[in-house]
């Protein structure tokens, strides 16, 4: 690898940062190479290590310092927010525990809502089946047939309403969970200041 390869790799590794940050970092290292002199190019690259390692330090610093000063993490990608938490010199186990708990909770909720949704769908299907069975039964007994048609419609309506309700409830729950987690992380970040 030569200097320009190194700088290209560095730039590439930094591409997710804001352009001003990238230019600032790249500018620093271009000057560094210039001042070291072409005869030291190899030595500098050996000492700096891989461009990815250099970039990782820059991104880590950006995540820890820049994001922890913001009052809201809205607009920042989740990976950068998580990096800011994990890269901070604070008890990693706590952060990890929080994230694992949140993931477990989310998974449980997904399963619960899916089951409820499946039950609602079952009620809808029951309604449809009974509705049509009702028409078939009319031949034998009009009253029974009408009853089944009516029951089928009722079940259909209840099932649809339940399904709608579950979708709404799941949306509200996940939004609240997301907000709760975000607020917790922000408060934790602020306490570290």
């Amino acid at each position: 690898m030569n200097r320009s390869d190194f700088m290209m790799e560095l730039r590439k590794a930094l591409r997710r940062l804001p352009p001003s940050e990238v230019e600032s970092a790249v500018g620093f290292y271009e000057e560094y190479f210039d001042d070291a002199g072409p005869e030291n190019e190899g030595k500098v690259m050996t000492e700096l290590g891989s461009p990815k390692a250099v970039a990782a330090k820059i991104i880590g610093e950006y995540a820890v310092n820049e994001l922890n000063q913001k009052t809201t993490w809205r607009g920042y990608p989740l990976w950068l927010v998580l990096l800011g938490i994990f890269a901070s010199p604070v008890a990693l186990p706590l952060a990890l525990a929080v994230v694992i708990t949140a993931v477990a909770l989310i998974f449980t909720l997904v399963v619960v809502f899916f089951s409820l949704g499946a039950a609602a769908v079952a009620v809808v299907f029951l309604g449809i089946v009974v509705f049509f069975a009702g028409f078939a039964a009319m031949g034998q007994s009009f009253g029974t047939g009408v009853f089944f048609v009516g029951y089928g419609l009722f079940s259909l309506a209840v099932g649809t309403f339940l399904a709608w309700g579950i979708v709404k409830l799941s949306r509200v729950t996940f939004a609240a969970l997301q907000k709760g987690l975000a607020n917790y992380l922000i408060r934790r970040g602020e306490r570290k200041q």
Binding site: F28, E47, L48, G49, V54, K57, I58, E61, Y62, N65
Partner: peptide, 14 residues
């Protein structure tokens, strides 16, 4: 390590 300095300088500038 060489690559440590730039983040430090950035932090001090900020």
């Amino acid at each position: 390590s060489e690559s440590t300095l730039y983040p430090v300088l950035r932090r001090l500038l900020q």
